[in-house]
Nucleic acid binder design. Sequence first.
DNA 1: CATGAAATTATTACGAA
DNA 2: TTCGTAATAATTTCATG
Lengths: 163, 163
Amino acid sequence: MVESSKILRESADLDDVDRKIVEELQANGRITNAELADRVGVAASTCIARVRSLVARKIITGFTASVDPRAIGLDLEVLVSVTVRSGARQRITELSEELRGLPEVMQLFFLGGVEDFIIHLAVRDSDHVRDFVVEHLSAHPAISSTRTSIVFSHHQNPVRMQG
Amino acid sequence: MVESSKILRESADLDDVDRKIVEELQANGRITNAELADRVGVAASTCIARVRSLVARKIITGFTASVDPRAIGLDLEVLVSVTVRSGARQRITELSEELRGLPEVMQLFFLGGVEDFIIHLAVRDSDHVRDFVVEHLSAHPAISSTRTSIVFSHHQNPVRMQG
DNA sequence: CATGAAATTATTACGAA
DNA sequence: TTCGTAATAATTTCATG
């Protein structure tokens, strides 16, 4: 089925206009359509159709405001590495769902390797970390061990085209 | 200086309207101001002033489109843990600046603990990971060791109020 | 600070190329 | 698909409470 795999790749293929739109919207997701159209060099009506197509094709998965955790009293970020008890691996999915719902959890990486998860937390202080780990991790029957590291700084980049 | 520390905290303090705006804009950063005002229950002119204040106070640090790396041919995500050579710790800052500029790097966590960094990469395939590690990490004089883990899945949550 | 109203801009269907 | 246009809708300034 060479055809269908080619079609699948083509459907995600971005031309120069799409690429520029994606770049601009990653840098400023609240830019007006008119301004975006100007920057990209197409008509406003073309631009809005392109943006909708990018969203419909799930190339753009959403638009979000970035919030500084420190600005709302969450002064401490940590990464917690978690190892799941062998024989409880089938419970990883339900555990991950549970963790995702907790307000402290900013990110969850489900991994292959020695560690099964890494949890990125934003919390008030070190007492809050301890409470989180005790309540949601140490006590959990599927969890074998955890390791907590302080995050001194954290940078997030836009997704960039490569190759 | 009880006063000044109180003032600092107050300046970041959000009332119910601010909290609702932050929540809505994290869920949909491209919502119109009119719609946002409706949802929050204030006049459009009030709403836009609140949003600007949140941005001016750096509570909202930006607005971005979320892009699916797989949709643009970056089919593999990995975390690379990096340990810096003791005696080269003062070079961590410059190394981090260098890494941030690379297109593969989506996130960079600068840590306290056994590992000094964790790098979150989006790449084409395993050859691409190997090339990245060889070119930018193994060869670097400040780097002592690296460990790479495949990311099976990755979830990102909005920042949520706590307490 | 918040609001409503007025003026300015932006969004968006749609017809034509 | 792209564009220009025209109607609709949103944004933003500002005077007033």
